[in-house]
Computed example of a mutant assay.
Amino acid sequence: MTDELILYTNPMSRGRIARWMLEEVGAPYRTEILQFGTTMKGDAYKTVNPMGKVPTIVHNGKVVTECAAICAYLADAFPQAGLAPPTDRRADYYRWLFFGAGPLEAAVSNRALGFEVPPDRERMIGYGSYADVMDTLEKAVQANPYIAGDVFSAADVYVGAQIGWGLQFGTIEKRPAFEEYFGRLASREACRRANEKDNAAAAELQKAG
């Protein structure tokens, strides 16, 4: 099928973000579950994504990797889902989508690894400091119901998923603003469906050993 949409993922990965976005889009898709260290690094999958990482989507034969890119691509590929603002109102949408892919991702990952940027080296790091990122993110989620304004968008999927994951595993501070914002997103039907599917896939993987 020329219009086939495939998700390559693992339920214990950032693939959960892509799954959520696909559920928001509402288009039919096929899921290929890959195992860390084996099928994910195998020659067959590396012809799709040479990094040997997930998630990856393939749509109409086109490969898209990187969670932020997947979210943005799907919002544009399926405009009927209303997951991207009109092009003349995308400033905040792009700003926070790429804030999530840049400063937020880097700051949270470094924090999880126990790396703290020395104060005299903050200018060398794109995000400055973890505290700067958390304070900026807090203001962003407090300003409007959603990260880019009054309407839910693909940027909420990407940023919101990172906040939810960080709150669960302690890599993002449990500030009331973060908990309130993610609670609003987590109640969406698409988010619930995505979690149910990934939780079921995780259970199957565990059962298989």
Rank of each mutant, 00 (worst) to 15 (best):
L205W: 10
A131M: 11
E116R: 10
G164D: 03
L7G: 03
M1C: 07
P79F: 08
A154N: 07
M1T: 15
A18L: 12
P85G: 08
E180D: 15
A69W: 08
A201H: 01
F78C: 03
F169Y: 13
A72W: 07
T65F: 04
T171E: 07
Y130V: 03
R16A: 12
A194C: 02
P55E: 00
Y73S: 12
R19M: 15
G52A: 13
G15Q: 07
I6P: 02
P55M: 00
I163N: 10
A201Q: 10
A161K: 01
Y93P: 01
L167I: 13
A208Q: 14
L113N: 12
A77Q: 14
T9D: 05
T65W: 05
T87A: 15
A18K: 08
G114H: 11
E138Y: 00
E204M: 10
G166D: 02
L137C: 07
Y130I: 00
I57P: 01
T47D: 12
E24R: 08
V151D: 13
F78Y: 15
D76C: 06
A201S: 11
L7V: 04
K197Y: 10
E138P: 02
V58Q: 09
I147G: 04
P50A: 08
A131T: 10
G160E: 05
R193Q: 09
G52S: 05
R121A: 15
P79E: 13
G100W: 02
E4V: 06
E173R: 14
W165E: 12
L5P: 01
V117E: 03
A101D: 12
E24P: 03
R193H: 04
F169R: 09
V157D: 01
E196L: 13
Q162D: 05
F115K: 08
V108A: 13
S187E: 15
L34Y: 06
R111Q: 10
S153V: 00
G52T: 04
A77P: 07
I6M: 01
A72P: 00
V157I: 06
I172F: 08
T136H: 10
L22R: 10
I17T: 15
D76E: 15
A161Q: 14
Y8H: 13
Y45G: 04
L113W: 07
E122Y: 00
D76R: 12
G114V: 13
F178R: 02
D132P: 00
A131H: 11
G114I: 11
R188E: 04
Y94M: 04
K174H: 15
F152L: 14
A112D: 11
V63D: 11
A106R: 13
P85Q: 05
F178G: 04
A148L: 11
E32V: 15
A106N: 10
T31F: 02
A155K: 01
A68D: 13
P118W: 08
G82A: 04
L83P: 06
E122H: 03
I125H: 05
D92Y: 12
A203R: 13
A148I: 06
A208Y: 02
L7H: 06
T31Q: 09
A44I: 12
A81K: 10
E189V: 08
E32M: 12
